[in-house]
Design a protein around this nucleic acid. Structure first.
Lengths: 261, 261
DNA sequence: GCCTAGGTCCCGTAT
DNA sequence: ATACGGGGCCTAGGC
């Protein structure tokens, strides 16, 4: 049954469902709704007893198995898989078996349907990229443009050079000319972020006399703050309410610059 | 049109689609396929120009917006949102507008449809929990049972006590009676995992005379290995091919134990 | 609520 | 291919 550009079949028997999967897998966005067991073997191993789920197979080979709750799929496979469909006898019933596999790493997801409520296939074309604003990268660039928001007198080194200096978010010198490493975070920094900064600063302190380390974030956990003091590092509070509104302008100017660069 | 337990409407006009969304949002698994723009405002901000997408609204308030590629939804909301649907005039067209919002943090996703190809609603009941084998927790427990696989003569302290000792995966003493902290990883350990161990060991070394630190993983990155040597820590190679087959047994015995505990 | 740690994390990017 | 870092990460478990 064609529904605009969508094909929908309700309650197909295993054979029809099998044909449907074979016809559309890898070409269109394929959807199955029904009761099934799911086994996964690969980086780990999982089993899921029979229940009703929604299965999505994207044209790029992505598999998503969703239950009725939560953002994360209960099973999945990243792009690049190959799909096979078969009809097999199982416990005296004829069942649709769909397998999705890939190599490196070798992984396979096997779905055995005891019932297919619905099968759909449609083309969805999406040429657009998401424009995301307020990422760490955005904040980083804003601080490059307005280094005083990090600290009065802070001057970051040039971006091109920074690349060769390693993975540090910002690197420059403070008002007294002291080398200063800045790690930027878009949300409350925890112990892990503090350790990350410590690692970068440690490397620099091996090479140079005096190096300051700043963790620039909207907030820090107490544990992280203690750790920073311990390691002679500093926390630098970022006022996101002031910074975020500047981001759209940043993106606008970058688009303009893109015409020349 | 009832399709087993599924309702499907093809190419509904905005008003019908709006009713459909209002009727099913929060009750059943609701699906929309169509062309839309999507705006998100919350922890960050995003815009997505018009394109065809598949929208899922789970009864628990989860929102997923999928394009034709990749595992990750292009936009989403975790469980607990509320959905509203409206019909509005936009650019001289009548459009379905669906918003999904939540508080703490305040976030909103707004979808403006220029066309709805298909709308479905169905009940999917899934009472089963995924049984996952081969997690870090599994490996940890195997090593507790067979501590020689960590190192000849290693003896981990009791699990109950370990809880109070902090977040360390394993804590015990080696064949010479030296305190030993073990951080377990299920895959190649990188610099971050090495730093994590270093942090735990540092705390223990503040309190005790001599403390060893082992990073137990199937492999280590070169950088991480250097870091370990630097900090006087050690790498302990895990043979996953030997360990993983033991996991099913572990789970089986734990189920049995569960009957008594 | 905060915070930490894990994830079959995914994903981009640089080496 | 490996490795490192970010993510609107999500999610579970402690406190």
């Amino acid at each position: 049954m064609p529904v605009a550009e969508a094909d929908v079949i309700a309650g197909p028997d295993p054979e029809d469902a099998c044909c449907f999967v074979r016809e559309h897998a890898g070409n269109r966005l394929l959807q199955l709704v029904g009761g099934c067991t799911i086994d996964y073997q690969g980086r780990a191993k999982s089993q899921l007893a029979s229940g009703e789920r929604l299965i999505l197979l994207k044209p790029d080979g992505t598999l998503l198995v969703h239950s009725d709750e939560g953002v994360k799929p209960v099973n999945w496979q990243p792009p690049g898989t190959t799909t096979t469909a078969d009809v097999r006898e199982l416990d005296g019933d004829t069942r649709l078996i769909v397998t999705v596999e890939r190599s490196s790493p070798d992984e396979i997801v096997t779905m055995a349907f005891d019932r297919v409520t619905m099968a759909c296939a449609f083309d969805i074309e999406d040429w657009e990229d998401l424009e995301l604003l307020g990422t760490e990268e955005d904040i980083q660039q804003l601080l490059r443009l307005h280094p005083d928001l990090v600290e009065e007198g802070f001057e970051p080194y040039d971006m091109e050079l920074d690349r060769r200096r390693g993975p540090m978010d910002l690197y420059g010198h403070d008002v007294h000319g002291t080398r200063t490493v800045v790690e930027v975070k878009r949300r409350t920094a925890g112990i892990e972020e503090a350790t990350q900064l410590a690692r970068y600063v440690e490397r620099e302190r091996d090479k140079h006399e005096e190096v300051r380390g700043l963790l620039a974030a909207p907030d820090v956990s107490e544990t992280a703050h203690k750790y920073l003091r311990d390691k002679d590092l500093e926390f630098c509070e970022l006022d996101l309410d002031r910074l975020m509104p500047k981001v759209p302008q940043l993106h606008a100017t970058q688009e303009t610059l893109g015409d020349f660069g």
